Amino acid sequence: MIRSAEYVLSERPFVVRRQVRWGDCDPAGVVYTGRFTEYLLGAVGLFADHLAGNTGESLGQVHGVGTPCRGMAFDFAGTLWPNDVVDITCTVGEIRERSYDFHCVARKPDGTLIFRATFSPICVRLEARQSAPIPPSLRAVLQTYCHAEATGPTRQRKNHE
């Protein structure tokens, strides 16, 4: 029987559980750094699907915009080995005019911190591929999962959005 590598563990807080596969690791048995991006994108994708109501449409589609990635940041604190389990807690961070942040914290079930990460989508008009203000309906959904305490890596903003 093949088990899924990741699944939603809880919805409040929103937590994705991921099990490390042998293929995620280098010959020394440590997870490749690049795989953490896959772990983050998997968790963010499940979180966004949840925020979209698990309708089969993307979060942006439900609200009439595209939501491509504007930026990503990681702060690594630990390592993972084959068959390790990691729980990735997802919250909404800062909500700006055109973009917002998903903050994710990955910990082993015993509480050991593995990484903190921020994934930042930006809203775009689908017909023009130009940035657009966050629709009020999307802003309202994001605010239901807003986390007052910053859980992702700190990033400097050089321009206003």
Rank of each mutant, 00 (worst) to 15 (best):
N83V: 10
R35Y: 08
T55L: 05
V44E: 10
S10K: 07
V30Q: 15
Y100R: 11
I122D: 05
R12S: 15
N54T: 02
G42D: 13
E149D: 12
V31N: 02
P133W: 00
H103E: 15
G60Q: 08
E94D: 14
A140H: 07
L113E: 06
F119R: 06
E38F: 09
R157E: 13
Y7G: 07
V31F: 12
F36I: 10
L9I: 00
G60N: 10
G66F: 11
L41N: 12
L113N: 02
A128N: 02
T89Q: 05
A148E: 12
C146L: 15
R17D: 01
P13C: 07
R157Q: 13
A106L: 01
A77P: 04
A148V: 09
Y145N: 03
F119E: 06
C123D: 03
M72A: 01
Y39M: 14
G42N: 10
F74C: 07
I88V: 10
V44F: 05
D24Q: 12
Y7M: 06
P135S: 04
F36W: 12
Y145I: 02
P135N: 03
T154R: 14
A77S: 13
S10I: 06
I2R: 09
G23V: 13
G45T: 07
F102R: 09
V30W: 02
R3H: 08
R139C: 09
Y7D: 08
R116H: 04
R21E: 10
A150N: 12
G64S: 05
A28H: 10
R139D: 00
F102Q: 10
R125D: 11
R116W: 05
A132I: 05
R17V: 02
E161C: 14
R12I: 06
A106W: 00
G71C: 04
S99W: 14
E38P: 05
D101N: 15
Q61A: 12
C104Y: 00
L59C: 05
Q130N: 03
A140S: 07
R70N: 14
F36N: 13
P82L: 11
Y100P: 11
Y7H: 12
L40F: 07
A73Y: 05
F115H: 01
P13R: 03
D24F: 13
G60I: 09
Q130P: 03
E97S: 15
V20E: 12
L113V: 00
R139P: 00
T67Y: 04
P153N: 01
E11R: 13
V62R: 14
P133R: 06
R98V: 03
D26T: 06
T118A: 15
G78K: 01
T37S: 12
G56D: 08
L41Y: 11
A117Y: 01
G34R: 10
F76W: 11
A150Y: 00
G111T: 00
V92C: 12
F14Q: 02
V44C: 08
P109M: 00
T79Q: 14
A77H: 14
R129K: 10
T89I: 01
Y39F: 15
T89K: 09
I88W: 07
G64A: 04
I2V: 07
D110T: 00
D49E: 09
T154W: 11
Q61H: 07
C25I: 08
Y100M: 14
D75Q: 08
E161Q: 15
T67A: 09
D101P: 09
P135A: 02
S120K: 15
G45A: 08
R96C: 10
A77R: 02
P136R: 07
